[in-house]
């Protein structure tokens, strides 16, 4: 019998669409790639709560307020599922949060943009969650079991997020000129950051090939971006708003929309920490964590006392 090495066996499992589970052997780089990617994803969920939370107290109807709260709460839940998935790889949530708070870890740059009007709540649901869903659906088939299961749960729960956003915008577009102006303005501000969410062009994305081979990724950044542009442009037409891209044009031959060049300088600037809200977002997360320290400590201390008392009572 031919000896196959353990790395070949691992790849053979992946090729056969067999999920990798926490205790299975895996290459160190596979583990590291997953930790980095899932942690970034988790951080994006909880930092992503902030721009929307900015409007909770100003939601204009009780129905919208409840929907917005429920949506942001889901994002917290999704962060939690994802942090749990990372923990199966041997890294605790505390360590990941330390990396987030120190600025070492990254999260989706989109959340470093400000939410300026109520239309931003709709636009985030429509564009940002839309792009996220595009990214996440293939992740449900990711080769790593816990990540894949978390994504299945997340995708199921997220299905209302994009719809509520689009419905919110539709309602505003049926309203006054002031409301329509807010929607178009939100589109102008969020469109480019939204299509940047898929990451650098394939040519500039060195890890893509390996991630595809490991079936952590199923489609390249540009493939997903194209798909997103194609469906979103049609949705913008139904809304009656303009996509802020003069180069946007249907390409009969390709069967896709052509679109303009993303400003990658701005993208990298924001990734590196110099976006409009990077500092505020990190400070808010860090503040919540630091201010919560005494609460977490108290709960631990109480749990200790309680278990000691129970032991004494039983003795």
């Amino acid at each position: 019998m031919k000896e196959t090495n353990i790395e070949d066996q691992f790849q053979a499992k992946i090729d056969a669409e067999i999920k990798i589970e926490p205790k299975d052997w895996m290459p160190d780089t596979y583990r590291k790639t997953l930790i980095r990617q899932i942690a970034q994803h988790a951080h994006s969920e909880i930092v992503g709560m902030l721009p929307e939370a900015n409007w909770i107290t100003r939601a204009p109807t009780l129905r919208r307020k409840a929907a917005l709260l429920a949506k942001i709460q889901d994002e917290g839940g999704h962060g939690l599922y994802l942090y749990s998935a990372v923990e199966t790889l041997g890294v605790e949530r505390d360590e990941l949060l330390d990396e987030l708070h120190s600025g070492k870890a990254k999260y989706s740059s989109i959340f470093n943009y400000p939410t300026l009007t109520w239309a931003d709540m709709g636009t985030i649901g429509w564009l940002v969650d839309g792009a996220a869903i595009m990214n996440q659906i293939p992740l449900c088939r990711c080769s790593y079991g816990p990540y894949s299961r978390a994504m299945i749960r997340i995708c199921k729960e997220e299905s209302f997020h994009q719809r509520q956003g689009y419905e919110l915008l539709l309602t505003m577009m049926k309203g006054t000129d002031a409301q329509k102006r807010m929607v178009q303005d939100a589109m102008n501000r969020w469109w480019w950051p939204a299509i940047s969410m898929f990451g650098p062009n394939d040519a500039d994305s060195p890890h893509t090939a390996q991630s595809m081979k490991w079936k952590i990724k199923r489609f390249t950044n540009d493939e997903l971006r194209q798909k997103f542009v194609d469906v979103t442009v049609e949705q913008a037409k139904i809304l009656g708003i303009t996509v802020p891209d003069p180069d946007l044009k249907w390409n009969e031959e390709r069967g896709h929309y052509d679109f303009g060049q993303i400003n990658w300088d701005e993208f990298w600037e924001v990734v590196k920490g110099d976006g409009p809200c990077n500092r505020e977002r990190l400070a808010a997360r860090k503040n919540a964590w630091d201010e919560g320290a005494w609460v977490r400590e108290a709960a631990s201390a109480y749990a200790d006392k309680k278990s000691k008392r129970q032991k004494t009572a039983a003795a």
């Binding site: 749990s84 949530r93 309680k306």
Partner: peptide
């Protein structure tokens, strides 16, 4: 269903 953190 999944996991979470709790003091007790």
């Amino acid at each position: 269903a999944g996991s979470l953190h709790a003091a007790d």
